[in-house]
């Protein structure tokens, strides 16, 4: 395709996945034949209109037979080539890096194998990636034109697809099926080694750090910032500012002291004690944080004056 449409697109659509070349091959095959046919038909018709008239129908009898045979061969060729490329796209290679994808009201959500959830899509180069699309209460499509990849995800139905990026850089990701969900972001394909570094960064803080520093890293990396501030302003949950300096009033009318135990309980079993004025909506972090990281968090939260 690159060849066929390069003049029209100025090479704006790179072949950024291992599929891109073979999909473009299918594209090329049909395109070149279409161009050939277009020239043949328009050229032939023009000639017929201005050129001399054929005297008899002697030569023309064969036209039908050859034409029919050529058309049949082409159609079979299109199908076989396309089916081979497509079959390749259906089989997810072993050891592909798994990422779960969902489209929510606020946008895309990508869940990496370490449990890290983000709205950004980061991919490694030259390594197969397996997407698990979570079906939800809306149908959507997951389209990355530079990968020649478009996955329609039906209502409430999970779906798997894979791709192997072959170019580093940023590429458009968009969805098209639900007209209300015009969600366009950039996919980041990291150059060699860049993805591993990024993935390590999101995997969690360095557990050898001093407690308060470890807690601060953890607070930033584990998604606490989405609901809890450190400057006193209220989000979904209470701010951590001045946590250690006050007695906390709970929804059931009781109070609780600002201890390490209270913090640990709130991380592992958030609904056990809910601060007055807030909804019991926090997810549990049980199994996602080690004790040393929770201790660091407690130290960090108590350090906020």
């Amino acid at each position: 395709m690159s060849a066929t449409l390069a003049f029209a697109t100025g090479g704006m659509l790179p072949q950024a996945s291992s599929f891109a070349a073979s999909v473009d091959q299918s594209f090329d095959l049909v395109t070149w034949f279409a161009v050939f046919l277009g020239v043949l038909v328009t050229g032939g018709l023009s000639l017929l209109l201005v050129g001399p008239r054929a005297p008899a129908a002697v030569q023309r009898r064969r036209l039908m037979q050859y034409g029919a045979l050529a058309a049949l061969l082409l159609v079979v060729g299109f199908f076989v080539q396309g089916a081979r490329v497509w079959a390749d796209m259906q089989v997810v290679p072993r050891g592909a890096f798994p990422i779960a994808v969902a489209l929510e009201d606020k946008g895309w959500s990508f869940t990496y194998p370490n449990g890290f959830v983000t709205g950004e899509l980061h991919l490694p180069i030259d390594r197969p990636v397996r997407f698990l699309f979570k079906g939800s209460e809306r149908a959507y499509s997951f389209a990355i034109p530079a990968f020649r990849m478009q996955v329609p995800v039906a209502l409430r139905e999970d779906r798997v697809a894979w791709v192997q990026p072959t170019l580093a850089g940023e590429f458009d990701l968009r969805t098209s099926i639900d007209p209300r969900a015009e969600t366009s972001i950039q996919v980041q394909v990291h150059a060699e080694g860049g993805f591993d570094k990024w993935y390590q960064d999101i995997s969690g803080p360095d557990l050898t750090l001093p407690p308060i520093e470890l807690g601060q890293k953890s607070y930033q990396m584990r998604g606490c910032t989405q609901c809890h501030t450190v400057d006193g302003s209220k989000l979904v949950g209470p701010s951590f500012k001045g946590f250690a300096t006050r007695i906390h009033k709970l929804t059931d009318g009781t109070t609780v002291e600002p201890t390490d135990e209270y913090i640990k309980e709130s991380v592992l079993d958030p609904q056990a004690k809910v601060v007055e004025g807030f909804e019991p909506v926090m997810p549990s972090f049980r199994g996602r944080l080690q004790d040393i990281e929770i201790a660091g968090l407690a130290a960090y939260i108590k350090s906020l004056q």
Binding site: V23, A34, G38
Partner: peptide, 19 residues
């Protein structure tokens, strides 16, 4: 008719549908 072939050949169809 020819452009219909793009929408019938499987890999190009999956890349081009809904566009």
């Amino acid at each position: 008719g020819m452009s219909g072939a793009f929408l019938a050949v499987l890999p190009t169809a999956s890349a081009l549908r809904e566009t």
